[in-house]
């Protein structure tokens, strides 16, 4: 309908993938192909990187419609807040999301991903059309996992991260699947100087993920795309979640809710707490 009425030039959504437990991103250009679109709990990958790709590949003025579940809608909002594109360049097709499953960790309808279990924004904060019914947000402490982890001793937390990041093979699926990792040139791809070693050994892997977490701090919408993208199941989102809490508590900012607010780490307040300063 959007295509027919020329409200959008192309639609980015999901179609059924290589199995019934998987969905893959698809670009729809003609009204007749709209029937290929699906939305259910197999629709895990963030469509935001695909929307960016489409916006860059098409002439200025092209309107790209994106199927946006809560987290993807927030990521789009955050990118607009960061000046990546204008609100009228995208048509947001909002959908309520009950959480997605990972095809490797169970069949569709079985176990929701960890980021979905703690999700408090199942519906996009902004949309142009909404398909289906909004989903009631979850309750309870979304940072419970973080708090639990923080009870561990420093050495044990280190051991946990060493174990997790020891699995990393530096394929950068996490980075490329992330809706907020959109740097033209990632720091790991800079060679003059070569900031980070390229091996798949620690601490090279640790440093990469630490830098990525810091760079997405206050911007991450906890969509969990990084964890679902990781072919080896590295649990990446915990650190991001901790930084999300820090940014919310300290600076009163939550990513992806406002197109106007300046992102937390691009601004300041004279009243920011500084108990850690000597």
């Amino acid at each position: 309908m959007l295509l027919k009425d020329k409200k959008a030039d192309l639609v980015i959504g999901y179609e059924r993938g290589s199995s019934k437990r998987r969905a893959r991103p698809v670009v729809i250009r003609a009204d007749k192909d709209v029937d290929r679109l699906i939305f259910d709990d197999t629709c895990g990958p963030s469509l935001v990187p695909f929307a960016r790709k489409a916006l860059r590949a098409t002439p200025l003025g092209t309107r790209v419609a994106v199927v946006a579940k809560g987290c993807d809608g927030r990521a789009l909002v955050q990118q607009i807040a960061e000046g990546q594109f204008k609100r009228d360049q995208v048509v947001m097709i909002g959908v309520g999301c009950n959480g997605v499953t990972d095809h490797r960790r169970g069949a569709s309808g079985e176990k929701r991903e960890a980021s979905c279990e703690r999700c408090r924004y199942p519906n996009p904060p902004v949309y142009d059309v909404f398909v289906g019914e909004p989903v009631a947000a979850g309750t309870g402490d979304e940072f419970a996992g973080v708090a639990e982890f923080e009870k561990l001793a420093s050495a044990d937390r280190w051991a946990w991260f060493e174990h997790e990041l020891g699995k990393c093979i530096r394929c950068y699926a996490c980075r490329n699947a992330c809706p907020m990792c959109y740097c033209e040139e990632c720091v790991v791809d800079q060679t003059n100087p070569l900031w980070l070693g390229k091996s798949a050994e620690r601490p090279d892997t640790t440093l990469f993920h630490l830098v990525r977490a810091l760079h997405t701090a206050g911007r991450c919408v906890d969509c969990g795309a990084c964890e679902r993208a990781c072919p080896l199941g590295v649990r990446l989102a915990l650190l991001n979640k901790r930084l999300e809490r820090e940014v919310r508590e300290r600076f009163g900012y939550t990513a992806g809710l406002s197109m106007e607010a300046t992102p937390a780490l691009a601004t300041y307040s004279e009243e920011d707490k500084q108990e850690f300063m000597l």
């Binding site: 530096r170 394929c171 950068y172 490329n176 091996s199």
Partner: peptide
């Protein structure tokens, strides 16, 4: 359009064999 350009496929592929050489 359907590819993220990450290296997951290449690093998991049993036949991909390209490499880089670095001096550290």
């Amino acid at each position: 359009l359907g590819c993220l350009s990450c290296g997951a496929c290449a690093y998991l592929c049993p036949t991909c064999h390209c490499f880089d050489v670095q001096d550290e």
